[in-house]
Design a protein around this nucleic acid. Structure first.
Lengths: 272, 272
DNA sequence: TTGCTCCTCACGTCACGTGAGGTGGC
DNA sequence: TTGCTCCTCACGTCACGTGAGGTGGC
């Protein structure tokens, strides 16, 4: 005979609340071994205790229920990799927040915040091959990589050649769960036909302020520091932004860069 | 003349959404310089941009709006300390999650999980002076410290003496935002009068399984590992818990302990 | 007059906690 | 028969996003 228990006992033995258990049931994440069709009473099997406890531990690590649903039935190396990947993401986010927290201490104590050196330059008008989409933070790095590959692939099969560093232009705010239109641009010389959602346009000449960031400073949310430093610089110098901010890619492949390597300029067009 | 702008422009220049700005207004966190009494249009002052940006940065660090409300008007060392304290808390939490994530990789890959050595022992019946309350995770360490001070203070002024290590007994689950009754107990010899919410009771003799944890393993959520290891041990040995789990304090002052110092036994009474 | 921006509800998200009001099992 | 446990709504929390339906300003 298998050992059966009510939700109350199962709750005590897994340290999950009854409310949480009912939710996991309705989501199909942890379904009682038996539900009385008349009373609706849930009966759990002793063999389900370990699954319940694992769900509780994964929640304590911060994993959302949907993700837990994908992970909970894995075993062996597949399970280890899924958890490791989730955790690496959490580590990167945490490192970004740490960097921002330090920067905030600087700002609030009135430290002149000279952690970012700001320079200015003129850019010339250029033709760009571009793709634009609304993405969330989580999709961003994948979108940039895919887009660069598609755009440079298309250029390679044409009568045009790349001419200048690649750009990510942020037409709206991109943060935790909000999304904004992001445009990836490859400046080129020669001529190229538009195809599918790839467009061709002129990026106008302008004056911009910029600061160079390292790979560690380039991840969200640490990257916000650079934006803030540029905005502060605008205020100090009595100028105003004159277009969406952009990231100017200094390296082709982020994967091979060290945390302390400069990988991009964060640049913002401005006018008096 | 001060420079005034609509919510749309203020939104673009702070990269905060209009929805967020309306929320901050209603919370009194960032109130527009002027609101048209007829149309309800919000007009912001250029001088408010920096405040808006700081709120955005603090949100990106993960600080809740209520906390931001307490911090945003601070300057100098007071501001630095407030941010630092918040961040230290985040660091401790993150370290706990990291430890849990490693443990989960172990469990899921079927690693026998021998990260915690489990032993058993018999405990004798003892008189305890105790205080019990429902607390959340955030209040827990303060509650333990205060309670120990109150209980030992009361014992010091009586005809009794402490007799054995101090206990924290968890009568219900304590986690992120849920709370469970927690009881702090000081075993003693002699006699003592109950006062206010301090009670005197017998802690019964029992057999318990236990594992010793270091200071690093003692913080939530890393501490969940020890509980899980004990539960797994129960399953392996075909026994059942016979009372609420407890933490047996091995050191008087956590503050002076190193991360790798053993500071407590996590113990759980059981029966066949 | 036509877009564009702004306004205020109201509902959705996520993972539950907390009653309310009612019933089953010992 | 009396508590205790269990059940299902329904609403609250947090920090917004996303329409719906309506209006102001150029």
């Amino acid at each position: 005979m298998r050992e059966r228990m009510t939700i109350g006992e199962f709750s005590a033995r897994t340290r999950l609340s009854a409310k949480a258990l009912r939710l996991y049931d309705s989501l199909g994440l942890l379904v009682p071994a038996e539900v009385d069709p008349v009373t609706g009473y849930r009966m759990y099997d002793a063999g389900q205790l370990e699954r319940g406890r694992r769900i509780g531990l994964l929640r304590a690590v911060g994993m959302p229920l949907a993700r837990i649903g994908e992970v909970i039935d894995l075993t062996g190396p597949a399970a280890a990799e899924a958890i490791w990947r989730y955790w690496q993401h959490a580590e990167v986010e945490h490192a970004g927040r740490r960097s921002l927290a330090r920067y905030l201490e600087q700002i609030f104590t009135g430290g002149s915040g000279r952690m970012y050196e700001i320079n200015t330059r003129e850019t010339a008008e250029s033709k760009v091959l571009a793709i634009r989409r609304r993405v969330t933070i989580a999709e961003l790095s994948g979108f940039v990589a895919d887009s660069v590959a598609r755009l440079s692939g298309h250029l390679a099969g044409s009568a045009a050649v790349e001419d200048g560093p690649r750009l990510s232009i942020y037409h709206g705010p991109v943060n935790e769960d909000g999304d904004g239109p992001v445009e990836i641009c490859l400046p080129f010389k020669g001529s190229v036909e538009p195809v599918d959602d790839l467009t061709i346009r002129l990026e106008p000449a302008h004056r911009e302020a910029y600061t160079t960031v390292t790979k560690a400073q380039f991840e969200y949310p640490a990257i916000l520091q650079a934006y803030h430093a540029l905005q502060a610089w605008f205020s100090e110098h009595g100028v105003r932004s004159a277009g969406p901010p952009r990231e100017v890619h200094l390296v082709a492949d982020l994967g091979t860069a060290e945390d302390s390597d400069p990988v991009a300029d964060v640049a913002w067009p401005y006018a008096s």
